[in-house]
Design a protein around this nucleic acid. Structure first.
Lengths: 137, 137
DNA sequence: TTGAATGCAAAATTTTTGCATGGAA
DNA sequence: TTCCATGCAAAAATTTTGCATTCAA
């Protein structure tokens, strides 16, 4: 367990929302040394890519997509942070979690109808958060 | 309406499943001239990128993500092809559609609980298709 | 001490942009 | 004719790989 990895894990857990590799890189560098500016990072972007891939391979993190064209990473489900999905504000990017997606019913139905064995589902909900609804009026 | 665009639209509609830009490019070239091999395409990959972006901007196509790290494109919902989601085989890549995702309930609940105005949801289901379940035994 | 993780450089891949040409309407 | 779409070249952005060095255990 090295300092860069500790910083990246901390970045992920304190963010509380899925982060892109770029964001992991930025946040982790801030944690390592808040004084540093851009270009004087101690943590290389390559290391962030490698670590993110590693986490995903080992199923320690999940890859999430918000229709941005790249992955975000989030610490895997656990008893502390159980199965959940995201409600994303298209305007300001705010992310809220929600649980009880109620998809077990659907899963059962699909398995019956299609013969597939369902392993997982990916659900993200997009809209406008309360603040942005006011602002945009 | 040019030949390349006609071919790309036809590729999308005859595929019936969301295609990546690379796939749109390949399929459209096949349609334009089945004799051509790789490297002698008449349709440039750049054109496929531009057209895919155009379709998405104009809401004539939807961007779909299957956790592959890139977008797939699918002709937008219509009365002929109403709101649906995808059931994707992780083993062979087979894609089946399904309707009645039953998420209006969830949407209502989320709007009430979070104050968000929900605009859309992304749902994709992953698993193993019947054939692959047999093969992998 | 030793293997794994890192940084740096470079390469590979993917996507976008600029610009002159060509073709549809 | 006129403007938009295209191809080609090049650039930009993103992600991966190679390798020597460093560091945690």
């Amino acid at each position: 367990m090295t300092a860069p990895r500790r910083a990246m894990l901390r970045a992920l857990s304190q963010a509380g929302v899925p982060l892109s590799v770029q964001q992991i890189h930025e946040e982790a560098n801030r944690i390592l040394n808040p004084e540093n500016g851009v270009g004087e990072e101690e943590l290389d972007l390559v290391t962030a890519y490698r670590f993110a891939n590693l986490l995903a391979e080992k199923n320690l993190a999940q890859r999430i997509e918000f229709n941005e064209g790249y992955f975000r990473y989030e610490i895997a489900e656990s008893s502390e942070r159980p199965h959940h999905h995201h409600l994303v504000c298209r305007s300001c990017g705010k992310i809220e979690d929600f649980q009880d997606c109620g998809l077990t019913h659907l899963t059962t139905r699909l398995e019956k109808e299609s013969g597939f064995k369902v392993a997982e589902h990916k659900l993200e909900v997009f809209g406008t958060c309360p603040q942005c609804q006011i602002t945009s009026r």
